[in-house]
Design a protein around this nucleic acid. Structure first.
Lengths: 346, 346
DNA sequence: TTCCGGAACTAGAACGTTCTAGTCACCGGA
DNA sequence: TCCGGTGACTAGAACGTTCTAGTTCCGGAA
C-alpha cells in the first residue's frame, strides 16, 4: 500500500538508488523528478514507480547547492505578533504562484533578529523579507548589498539602495481614526504611542497632524506606550489619573488597545459610553466578538502580494540588488466596531 | 567599518575565496570556520580576518550536504494557534543547548500538513516534531520508519513504533476543571467539545468520567464545538436556547471559551454570576486581563523540553528510529481567574 | 543511398562544504 | 644520531543533486 520505507542501509535513498532500480542513468532520473522534458513516457513511468517504491525524496539541500537559483524567499517574522503570522500566511499564498518557496526565520525573546537573519542567509535564500525589522537602517543597507531586501511595515527614509519598503500609510490611518472620533463629537482625543516600534513615529505624526488640522492642537496628548497589552494597560492607568480625562483614545495597535480596554473595564469606566477606544492593524484579536474593537485595518493580503512582487521583480532582472529602493504604500481603512461612540454629554 | 560586501562576480564568497585571500588551503579555512582544533593561533586570526573582509558566510546547504548529521529538528506548527507559537518559542530555547537547530514548517489554511512535512523532509532534518498533527496514525508510522517522530499534544494509542508522544494529561485537566466547579457548588456543568481536534477525545472522556465520579452523570451534557471562537460562540447560542441551562461550561480550549464568553456577554448573561466558564491551554489569550479566563494550564516550557529530549535521545543512540514509541504525559493544573464562581442561588 | 534533425538517454563535471589520509617540520628522549 | 610523537597544514575524495556536452537511434527528406 504505502511505499516500502525500509531504506537499505538506514540511509535515505538517492537519485542513484532510483536509477539503479529503474535501470537508467542518474541524470535521467533527475530529469523525470524535475518534470523536465527529455524523457520518454514509458521510462518516465518506470522511474516514478521505482522512486515511489523505495520512498525516494529529493534532497533540497543538494538540489539548491547545485542549481544557481534557490527560489527561496527568507521571511523574518515575530512569532507572537498576530499581525506577522497573518502576513506570513498570505506570503505563502503569494509566493507559490510565483514559483518561490518560503523559509521562515522566527524572532522571539530568546531569538534575536540577527540570529534569524543569519540562519536565513545560511540557507541561501535569494531575497530577504523582513516584517517590522528593528535593526538600524545601516544594517539593512549592508544586507541589501548582498541580496534584495524588502522591509515590510517599517518605513525607511530614504530607503537605502537595494531595500524596498512595503507599508501601510500609518499617518493616514491615524488621521482616519481621529476624523472618525471628531465626527462622533470628540475633542479630547489622546494617543498612546508605540515607542520605537516600526510605524509608531508615523502614527504619532499622523495623529498630531490630524488634531491640528481639526483645530484641536491643544487637546492633543501623547502618552508613552508600546506594542504590548501591558504597555496599553499602564498608559490607561496614567490616563485615568490625569487631570483632564480624554473622551477617546487611539492606541498604537490592537494589542495595546486591548490593554487599555482591560484597565478601563476594571476601573468600571464604560466603553464606549464614557471613553471610546480605537486600535490599529485589525488583527484577529480586534475581531474577537467580545473585544469588538474599532480599529484601522491594514490590508494584509495586499501587502503580502506587493511584498512578494517586489522581491521577485528584483530577482528577475530589473536592478537585481542595486538601484534606489522603492517605497510602496498601501491605504488603510477604518473598521468601525463597538468601542467607539459619541462622547458623553457634558 | 562594515565588511566590504561587494562580491567579486556578484557571487557569494566561498571557502575557496577566503583560502585564496589568506593564502592557506580550503580545508584549513573549514577548520577555522568550524572552530575545530588543528589550526595555529596566528593563522586562525589571519583566516578570520580574511573571511570578514570579503563577507564570507558559510553555506549551510553545502555544509549539511557533506556532513552526515544535519542537527536539524523539523517542527510542524499551526501559524494561528497561540498554543503552537508559544511552544515553538520554547522549542528554540530547548534545542539550542542540545546543539540542534530548528526548521519551521508552517501549517495554514493555504498550506496543508503534508506540504509542511514534505518541505521539512526535503530540508533533511533529522527528526520531526509535529504539533497537534491531524494526519492519520498510519501516516505517522510511515514517517517514523524514516526518522524519529515526536507527536506533541496528540495522543496515539498505542504509539506506532518510532513515534514518541509528549502530551498533557487532557483527561486529568478536564477532571480538575469539573472538580473545581463542583467544589464551587455547580451541578449542571456542560462541556463544549473540540470535535476531531487533537486532545478533544481525552478531554471529553475526562469530563464524562469526572461527572460520573461526582455522581453527576445525568447532568453531563456534551455540545458539539471546535477549536475556534466561532465554534464556541455557536455552541453557546445552542446552550442558551436549551431547556435546562447549565450553570457552568467547560470549553475545549481558550479560543473556544472566548467565543462562549462573547455570546454570553452579548446576551447579557453575567459571567461568572450566572454562568461560569473554563477554558483550556492557558494561552496568552486567557491571561489578557479583560478576558481573565479560568483555564487549565499546559506547561509549555516543560513540554518543549521533553519533546526535544525525546528527539535527541532517539537521534543519539538509543533505538534510533525503531523501538516502541514512548508516551510522556505532563500534568496540567487549573489556573483560577475571574470567570468562575459559585452558581446563582436557585 | 546519404544525410540531417530531433528525441531519448548518458558520462562526468560542477556546486561549497567536511572528512580522511596523509605530508612536513619540529621537539624531546634514548 | 635516530626514533617516535605531535601539531600545523594540505590534497583530494566524498555528499546528492543539476547542468553541459555528448552519443545513439530513428524517421524522413534529398
Amino acid at each position: 500500500m504505502s511505499p516500502t520505507p525500509a531504506v537499505p542501509g538506514g540511509k535515505r535513498p538517492t537519485l542513484a538508488d532510483v536509477a539503479a532500480r529503474a535501470d537508467v542513468s542518474v541524470a535521467l532520473v533527475s530529469v523525470v523528478m524535475r518534470g523536465a522534458k527529455g524523457a520518454g513516457a514509458a521510462t518516465r513511468e518506470r522511474v516514478l514507480r521505482a522512486a515511489k517504491e523505495i520512498g525516494y525524496r529529493p534532497d533540497s539541500r543538494a538540489r539548491l547547492l547545485r542549481s544557481s537559483r534557490s527560489r527561496l524567499l527568507g521571511v523574518q517574522f515575530e512569532l507572537q505578533q498576530p499581525f506577522h503570522t497573518d502576513l506570513v500566511e498570505r506570503l505563502y499564498s503569494a509566493a507559490e504562484p510565483a514559483g518561490y518557496q518560503i523559509a521562515l526565520g522566527a524572532v522571539a525573546p530568546s531569538r534575536s533578529e540577527r540570529q534569524a537573519v543569519e540562519a536565513l542567509l545560511a540557507d541561501r535564500c535569494e531575497a530577504l523579507i523582513l516584517l517590522g525589522p528593528q535593526v538600524p537602517a545601516a544594517r539593512l543597507a549592508e544586507l541589501a548589498a548582498q541580496l534584495p531586501v524588502v522591509s515590510v511595515a517599517r518605513r525607511l527614509r530614504p530607503p537605502p539602495s537595494g531595500v524596498d519598503v512595503v507599508r501601510t500609510a500609518d499617518d493616514e490611518g491615524a488621521r482616519q481614526a481621529v476624523d472618525h472620533l471628531v465626527a462622533l463629537g470628540h475633542r479630547d482625543i489622546a494617543h498612546i504611542d508605540g515607542g520605537r516600534a516600526p510605524g509608531a513615529a508615523d502614527r504619532r505624526r499622523g495623529y498630531r497632524t490630524a488634531m491640528n488640522r481639526q483645530g484641536l492642537g491643544e487637546h492633543a496628548q501623547v502618552l508613552p506606550g508600546g506594542s504590548t497589552e501591558e504597555d496599553g494597560a499602564a498608559a490607561a492607568r496614567a490616563l485615568l489619573d490625569a487631570d483632564r480625562r480624554p473622551t477617546a483614545v487611539l492606541a498604537f495597535n490592537d494589542l495595546c488597545a486591548t490593554g487599555v480596554l482591560d484597565t478601563l473595564l476594571r476601573a468600571r469606566v464604560p466603553v464606549p459610553d464614557e471613553i471610546s477606544v480605537i486600535g490599529f492593524d485589525d488583527t484577529r484579536l480586534a475581531r474577537l466578538a467580545h473585544v469588538d474593537l474599532t480599529t484601522v485595518r491594514q490590508d494584509i493580503a495586499h501587502l503580502a502580494q506587493l511584498t512578494v512582487g517586489r522581491a521577485v521583480a528584483r530577482l528577475e532582472g530589473e536592478a537585481p540588488s542595486e538601484g534606489p529602493g522603492q517605497e510602496i504604500v498601501v491605504e488603510p481603512h477604518l473598521v468601525t466596531r463597538g468601542t467607539t461612540a459619541a462622547p458623553p454629554a457634558t
